[in-house]
Each structure stands twice: as structure tokens, then as C-alpha cells.
Nucleic acid binder design. Sequence first.
DNA 1: GTCTATATAAAGATAGAC
DNA 2: GTCTATCTTTATATAGAC
Lengths: 189, 189
Amino acid sequence: MPNSRVERRRRSEERILAAARTVFAERGFERATIRAIASMAEVDPALVMQYFGSKQELFDLAVRIPAIPPLNGGLDELVEELLARIGMKIGPIPQASLAMMRSMLTHPEAAEGVRARLDEQVEQLSSAIPAEDADLRAALMISTMLGVTVAHQLLDLTALRDVSPTRIAAALRPAITALTRPDEPAGPS
Amino acid sequence: MPNSRVERRRRSEERILAAARTVFAERGFERATIRAIASMAEVDPALVMQYFGSKQELFDLAVRIPAIPPLNGGLDELVEELLARIGMKIGPIPQASLAMMRSMLTHPEAAEGVRARLDEQVEQLSSAIPAEDADLRAALMISTMLGVTVAHQLLDLTALRDVSPTRIAAALRPAITALTRPDEPAGPS
DNA sequence: GTCTATATAAAGATAGAC
DNA sequence: GTCTATCTTTATATAGAC
């Protein structure tokens, strides 16, 4: 049971990373301060620098998502998987993701990170869509998910406040589904 | 023809505001600097402070949108109006809007401004939707538009790069339309 | 190994010369 | 009225004491 030095240090690092995720998620990269993160983790600010080298490196490690959910199955399954994220059927959105998203419009590194992840998902979806413009459709599906998540989680849009994730996902299903099929004006007039 | 002092000053102010919109739209509130704005406007940085008082006041004036497009007509017209914005049928998205959006996730004032505008549009849309959950549906329509705009204009998602706004709007129509109607699983299998 | 104290840098804001 | 020079603040980063 190695319970000194390395173990203590590992625990401190974990507390700092957790605090970093929270503060970055709430305020974004620029407005987050090492001081605030250290304070929340109950360590000395200098220690944070000692451990992680720089604010940027701390950010990189903090927002690194553990695993990349692969998104497999047929098209209908993929749609359900996307909706399940919004519906929080697989737990709340990870702090690391929120932190990344919070900074994506103003911090170049975060922008690149988010774009890369979204591009990846677009590609996975696209290959399951049987249409000429599969890429475009997949991109619109992902963009829609992004918009709803931003409006709900980060912008706190009034009409989405206090609405259960389950209801949001349900109401959104027809819109997402419409993007998977070639056009048909559809619907009772 | 009043062409001294006041007229010159008015022109300088206008140049500064235009530069501010550009810089705020590109870098967001935090990373935008008075110096960069002044440089682009070809005036002295001190002049900017002299004219506008503070960075925040400059931001407020720069992102103030001239008129609030009222969004009127029946539901189908409203949908077309929304799509026309994405489709850029009414010209490119104003720099002021982009500046506001760029900062909405990290600058509290910008967040409040965007939320207020979106809430307003949700309400307008909602009152035209004949359904129990009109508010939710309207919010999802607006969130979708937001997501596509963010992904396309600010995040530069690869699959949307070089796609004409017209095609994007066309591909998006069925999804938006689906949100206006009560559910029906719909579509040929 | 951890923290105190400080160096350094960047940018907003201001005072005063011209 | 406009700009030079500077003040002040804030936060990252570092060096050295303990």
C-alpha cells in the first residue's frame, strides 16, 4: 500500500484536475485563473505550476476525455445514441467536455480540439447515411446537437431551463431523423 | 456642409466601431485589445478610450444591432425567414452579431445579450406554433439555427466549409419543419 | 517538496504636454 | 482635440527560502 509521497501527489494532482475542469467549464480558458483553481483544490497556486508547467498544459490534461465513445451500429442506432447524450441516458455531460465547449469560440486550442472531435463524429455518421450529400447531412445533425447542448447547458436559454433532458431528446428526434432521409415534403397539412 | 470637427470626429468614431466589430468578432471580448482595434482603425489607442470610455462601453456600442428584424407572418413564413438567414438571402450575417456570438460563452454581458435576443425569437416563434409544447419546439428550432451558425461561421466545421449557404438552408429545411408539427414517425422506410 | 516573495508581461486606463 | 508617456492592475511564471 504505497501511501506516501507518490500517492499523496497523485491525489493532489487529481484534485487539481477536477477543480480545473470545474473552473474552466464555468468561466472559459481566459477568465479562469490558476489562483481560483488552486483555491478550489485547496493547494498552493505555485504547486499547480510546479505540477503542470503552464496554464495551457493544465488545460490540455484537464479537458482530455478518457475514452472516445466510438458510435457504432446502424443509422437508427446512431441517432438514438446521439439523442441519448442530450437525454443524459448515459449520465451528465462530462465536465471535460463542457470545459472544452465553453472555450471553443475564444481559445484557439479549444477550437481546434472541438473541431477535430466533431469532424470525427461527422465522418462516422456520414458513412452510415445513404445519400449523395451524406457529409452535409451528418454535419447538420452534429451541428444541431451542438446547438441544443450549447443553448441548454452553456447559455441557459429560458425555454429550455427546467425542461427534462428526456423531453428535449424526444422533441428533437423527428428533426434529427429528418436529416437521415432523402427529402420528402411530408407531413399532414 | 459641416466638414470639420464634428464631422471628422463622427467619421473616426465610425471607423473605430467598424474595427471593433471586426476584432471582437475574430477574437472575442477578452482577447481583443484596444490597441489592436485602434491600429486597425488607424487612430491612437488613447483616442479610443477618450471617445468610448472603456472597453466594455465600446463593446456595447459595437455589437448593438441596428434594428431587430421582427419576424412576422405565418408559421411557414417564419421558417422560411429563419432559413433565409442561414441561406444569406438577406446578406451576410452582420459583424455585430458575429462579435456578440463569439463572446457569448465567455463574456457575461455577451451571454446575457444573446440569451435575451434568442428568448425573444423563441417567444415570437412559439406563439405561431399550434402545439402544447410550443415553447420547447420553438427553442429547439432556434437552438438548431444557432448550432448551424456556430459550426459554420465560428467553428469552421470541415464538412460545412465551402458548402454554399443555399445548400445548407435547403438541407436543413426538413429538420426545422419537423419541429413545427406534432409528431408522426413519417417517412418511407 | 512546498510555499513566500518577486519577476515579468500585457493591457486597460489616465494625466498632462502640445 | 490629439497623442506621449506612464500608472495600475492582474495574472502567469520563477527563484529561492524553509
